[in-house]
């Protein structure tokens, strides 16, 4: 096994171009397990841990640019004000040791449907910054997941950062596991209200071959809020709306039966989480409190 440890980003891109089959390694929380169990024997490992810019967080009023290797612990501790949904998701990742090493970039690279960050990234409308010696692509996160553990990266590309708009409205994340900590998601759900664009976005984890949004549910809820003047009034929304939203979220799932749970349970749990997270999010909504009026989700990056 060849082990490459570039000192800088340009060197890493060159190495990836030269060794397209090289497997990038950051925190190692997925790769090392696969190596230890002999499930994977890549010919080349590309260790990115020496590249300091991958650990950088840049905060501007319009975006948080999260270096690909920023560990979950930092997101929980430093970014809960601007990325509350992602911070809630990060808090459910593995153990403290895993959260100290694992990163959103790694979650995206592995592209497991059970990755905890994905629903929150989908709901927030994140963009993946993919780079190669050929240049940079900004990939909306919903276009990033292409199949079970497959993503939209070209073979010479690496994930440099993830861009997420600071939350302008309430965000929630909810995850069912079969114990109360250190558990891989049976399924997960994330919700973000975007008052600036008067939209709602969702993200569903572990209930389809890839992380998915529930577009019909988002559209339904957005329309209700818009037409009912709820964005302006902040008034309670009729419970039937929550139920319909939850049903549409459940309908967006395409789950399987496996050792962690049945397909029927996953669909049911997504429905319950959608309803509850919506109720919590709306309870936390304050008209006119949006901190970022031109906030508009992924389209504006």
């Amino acid at each position: 096994m060849e082990f490459l440890r570039p000192a800088g980003w340009e060197e890493a891109l060159a190495a990836k171009a030269e060794h397209p089959d090289a497997v990038p390694l950051a925190g190692g929380t997925d790769i090392m397990v696969e190596l230890n169990f002999g499930r994977r024997r890549p010919r080349t490992l590309l260790d990115l841990s020496a590249i300091s810019e991958l650990h950088a967080v840049e905060r501007t009023p319009s975006a948080v640019r999260l270096g690909a290797a920023v560990p979950y612990t930092r997101i929980v501790e430093d970014l809960a004000d601007v990325l509350p949904g992602l911070a809630m998701a990060s808090r459910t990742v593995g153990s403290p040791q895993i959260r100290n090493r694992g990163s959103v970039g790694g979650n995206l690279g592995s592209a497991s449907p059970a990755g905890d960050a994905h629903p929150a990234l989908l709901a927030a409308g994140a963009t993946v910054e993919a780079e190669s010696v050929r240049g940079t692509r900004h990939i909306p996160v919903e276009e990033f997941y292409t199949g079970v553990k497959r993503n939209a990266l070209a073979e010479d590309e690496l994930i440099r950062a993830v861009r997420v708009r600071p939350a302008a409205g309430p965000q929630q994340f909810s995850k069912v596991g079969t114990r109360n900590a250190m558990t891989i998601a049976v399924c997960a759900f994330a919700l973000a209200l975007h008052p600036g664009s008067r939209t709602v976005r969702s993200g569903i984890g572990s209930a389809a071959p890839t992380p998915v949004r529930a577009p019909e549910a988002e559209e339904f809820l957005g329309r209700v809020l818009d037409e009912g003047g709820y964005w302006e009034s902040g008034e309670p929304v009729p419970p039937l709306v929550a139920e319909e939203f939850a049903s549409l979220c459940a309908a967006a799932c395409d789950p399987i039966d496996d050792v962690r749970g049945s397909a029927a349970y996953r669909r049911h749990a997504v429905r319950v989480m959608a309803q509850r997270t919506w109720e919590w999010a709306w309870a936390g909504y304050r008209p006119g409190a949006a901190r970022n009026d031109d906030e508009g989700g992924a389209a504006c990056v």
Binding site: M88, R91, T92, Q172, F173, S174, K175, V176, G177, R179, N180, A181, T183, V272, M273, R276, W280
Partner: peptide
Amino acid sequence: LRELPGGVGNTTHGE
């Protein structure tokens, strides 16, 4: 959350 079923998975606030 740590005192609730589901823990920090944030699945219920008492509902």
